[in-house]
Design a protein around this nucleic acid. Structure first.
Lengths: 218, 218
DNA sequence: GTCAATATTTTTGTATACAAGATGGATATT
DNA sequence: AATATCCATCTTGTATACAAAAATATTGAC
């Protein structure tokens, strides 16, 4: 599936940026990375360019690429956009969703519940991902679906941080149920409002998390 | 401002794809392009990669890159997303917009009107761009602003097609005025609904244009 | 004559070599 | 001593060379 070396390197670098191995503002030296991955500069450069397009690094011409960790405000902004995009998906899905997809959502939610009960974090994430992916798909708008997947993927590492908040999982599940109910009833506005809140609260919780942990981020 | 040769090449290729010099599905040969731009394959490859990220071409590993003109359905989808994004901007702007920005919007609209009266197509586009750019900015969400600018830019060549529809410009201006009025009144829902319709209608008109011109596009 | 297997050629992906701009420090001048 | 200038070095951007894979042509078997 992965074909070009530069693709795999891009993924690796992405992970390294996400898990904080590269701190914000750090310059990524091409020859260093080339040695690290045992390749020439060419695939490194291709990978870096991809990351630049994704917004993970900033490429200053003739100067180098610098990792660009989103600050607190940008994160909140991204969560806000994610919330709105998912709300659009929900509103569209309310009229376009198929019965099969509704069944799928319910089944996914059930598995998600079981994962919560079993304290299976990975399982929870997998099913949660699936829930949202189905919602995107059922918007009936392939372009919207892709954009949602893109942003969702970008926010994923930050989403992981906040699961530790007590009681969040249970409430999250309840919100999922409410969304399914609204979709079933064809109530687009309720579905949109519910999912918007469901996602937006993550941004807010994140805000809280950050300000409680770090002294003054940005 | 333009720094790397590959950047300028990417822009050139983008234009060539937009204006239809490269038809859909056509393979872009690296050496051919290299000769055409009198450079080596390296900057060509970098440019092509950027285009692939933007979705303008599809890159099939070890096989080449192929231009990927959006089909009719994808265009409608993109306009739908644009409409929703702008609606979000409007709703947020209704509470966040500054008085200065309101004045700016009004002035821009006025210049836009004048351009319409003078049959100054370029002027109209410039001011129309500005109107939407201000709206994005006044959402108060920098990330949303960037995403809107990205999609707006991508849709620009297709938007240009439909100005020839009789009476569209006048109605468009009226919609702009309505948006400003709603923003002034702080009525986010009305502003959102108005701008959503304003943008969505472009996708629909485009649909009409296509089906009337081409026999059966996709 | 058709199909298949192999060889040739073409094209992409990667490595290396080269060019030009940027960084940093040393030296000279005020 | 402070600052400006020039030089050395380093890093990026581009060109070329090489390797591997795919496309195409050729040849052989049936």
């Amino acid at each position: 599936m992965e074909r070009k070396r530069s693709d795999r390197i891009a993924d690796s670098l992405e992970s390294l940026i996400f898990d904080g191995t590269f701190s914000d503002g750090e310059r990524l030296d091409e020859v260093q990375l080339a040695k690290r991955f045992s390749v020439s500069r060419t695939p490194i450069r291709e990978a870096l360019q991809r990351l630049a397009m994704s917004g993970l690094v900033e490429q200053i011409p003739r100067r180098g690429v610098f990792v660009r960790q989103p600050g607190l405000v940008e994160l909140v902004e991204m969560f806000e956009v994610m919330a709105e995009l998912e709300a659009v998906c929900a509103r569209l899905a309310a009229v376009r969703i198929t019965d099969d997809a509704l069944d799928d959502l319910r089944a996914t939610n059930q598995r998600c519940q079981q994962a919560v009960a079993a304290q299976d974090a990975d399982g929870y994430y997998r099913e949660n991902e699936r829930f949202h992916a189905i919602l995107y798909r059922q918007s009936g708008n392939g372009f919207l679906e892709q954009e949602c997947l893109r942003l969702h993927r970008r926010l994923q590492p930050f989403r992981r941080l906040q699961l530790r908040l007590r009681g969040r999982l249970k409430q999250s599940m309840a919100e999922h149920e409410a969304v399914v109910a609204a979709l079933e009833a064809g109530d687009g506005d309720t579905a949109a409002a519910t999912i918007r809140q469901h996602v937006a609260v993550q941004g807010e919780k994140f805000h809280y998390l950050m300000s409680s942990l770090k002294p003054a981020a940005e």
